[in-house]
């Protein structure tokens, strides 16, 4: 049976979906990913869907599930590289994936995760400090 590979990159897990997912494959991915988060203690999950041309409500729900499950295991999920046509369709379908972080590409996704996790480590840091740091 086909499997979607899950790569470990430091504190993060990276999943690149390259094929059109049929249901069984998506369900397996959900299970594998949650297992991996638990096993590796990963703090973040990146799901790259830049090669995916269709996300229907089933796929959307799987992504939502992964995010919620990871959250319980203390890892943030970022969906990266969504195609414009897919984004428009999801919104029209009424599935805006609330609660899932998004980024333009893997690099930005990593950056986002790093910021999120840093913030978690130093909760007293607020936005103003972040700006003065940048100066």
């Amino acid at each position: 049976m086909e499997k979607i590979p899950i790569l470990r990159m430091g504190h993060f897990l990276l999943v690149t979906i390259q094929v059109d997912l049929y249901d069984r494959l998506a369900v397996n991915l959900e299970a594998d990913l949650v297992q991996m988060v638990n096993k590796t203690g990963a703090r973040g999950v990146l799901i790259d869907i830049s090669a995916v041309s269709i996300v229907d409500s089933f796929m959307g729900r799987i992504i939502g599930n992964i995010a919620n499950m990871s959250k319980i295991l203390d890892a943030e999920t970022v969906v990266v590289g969504m195609q414009p046509a897919v984004a428009i369709t999801l919104v029209e379908l009424g599935l805006p994936l609330q609660g899932v972080f998004t980024a333009l590409n893997v690099e930005r996704g990593m950056e986002l995760l790093r910021n999120r996790i840093d913030l978690d480590l130093n909760p007293e840091d607020d936005d103003d400090d972040a700006i003065s740091d940048a100066d």
Binding site: D23, I54, I88, T89
Partner: peptide, 17 residues
């Protein structure tokens, strides 16, 4: 067009499911 195609195929996917 790509967007309408994506909408149609997504709808088809929902219904076949």
């Amino acid at each position: 067009g790509l967007v309408n195609q994506t909408k149609l195929i997504t709808a088809a996917s929902e219904l076949s499911r």
